[in-house]
């Protein structure tokens, strides 16, 4: 499953378009003149060294940060306008694990911003939450407390939360950083299925592993150093990480 051709029935408008983007946190410049266009239906893997600006680029695309220069359009809108059309799976859960809440309630939070603002959860939201849990094969966890899940289970639940809002784009930040390799393969197989209807942008540091799944790899180290559709070879990795990276072959 290497090449996914962009879906022809979707509009030709780019799903995500980043133009000449630069961003600094105070003194340190994190992103420099980044251009990236993702067409609907693609599965793009964003790789690069730690502190290379991967998470920052995601936060900009999600509208959590404002760029200093350059432009970002998501589905033809500004990032903040489009945020509800994106499903986001963070690298680290940004909530306390001991929070008194069930898996089902967490997933239903993915429905916020759909329908009326007032009142409790509606039946439609509960149904959507259960559908999303079913899709990630975690329906049996619905009544469990969020703090009682293992790393792999939590990752599936966070994916379900992102899917519950019926997004058009799925953005994942290191989705497999805290889980073992067998589960990692499961998660990627699931993503490959979801890619049949969703555009996916995925951040990973494990370049060799994801290259078997994604349709394209974008390499980011402050600036976008490679942006090809070809398989990533040793040369690009050396260019990206420096010369002393050992290439470990993954076989699936």
């Amino acid at each position: 499953m290497t090449e996914h051709a962009p879906m022809s029935n979707l509009s030709s408008k780019p799903a995500i378009q980043v133009q000449n983007l630069s961003f600094s946190y105070g003194e340190s410049r994190v992103l420099e003149h980044v251009d990236l266009t993702i067409t609907p239906g693609e599965f793009v893997g964003l790789v690069g060294p730690n502190a290379g600006g991967k998470s920052t680029l995601l936060k900009l695309i999600l509208g959590l940060l404002e760029p200093q220069t350059g432009q970002i359009r998501v589905l033809g809108q500004t990032p903040r306008q489009a945020a509800r059309r994106i499903g986001y799976v963070p690298q680290f859960p940004s909530f306390p694990r001991d929070f008194p809440i069930s898996v089902e309630q967490v997933v239903a939070m993915g429905r916020l911003g759909i329908g009326s603002m007032l009142g409790w959860q509606r039946a439609a939201d509960r149904d959507a939450a259960r559908r999303a849990l079913n899709e990630v094969e975690a329906l049996d966890l619905a009544r469990r407390r969020i703090g009682s899940l293992s790393g792999g289970q939590l990752q599936r639940v966070l994916l379900a939360r992102a899917l519950a809002g019926e997004p058009e784009i799925l953005i994942l930040d290191e989705p497999t950083a805290n889980i073992d390799q067998r589960v990692e393969t499961d998660v990627f197989d699931l993503l490959a299925t979801l890619n049949q209807r969703l555009t996916i942008l995925l951040v990973s540091h494990d370049i060799a592993f994801i290259s078997g799944y994604v349709s394209r790899v974008a390499c980011l180290n402050r600036t976008l150093t490679c942006h090809g559709t070809d398989a990533v070879d040793g040369e690009t990795i050396r260019e990206l990480y420096g010369s002393h990276v050992r290439l470990v072959a993954h076989h699936h």
Binding site: I86, P90, M109, G113
Partner: peptide
């Protein structure tokens, strides 16, 4: 529960 996610959902 999760300020960042709430912000993404337009809250």
């Amino acid at each position: 529960f999760d300020e960042e996610f709430a912000r993404l959902r337009g809250v």
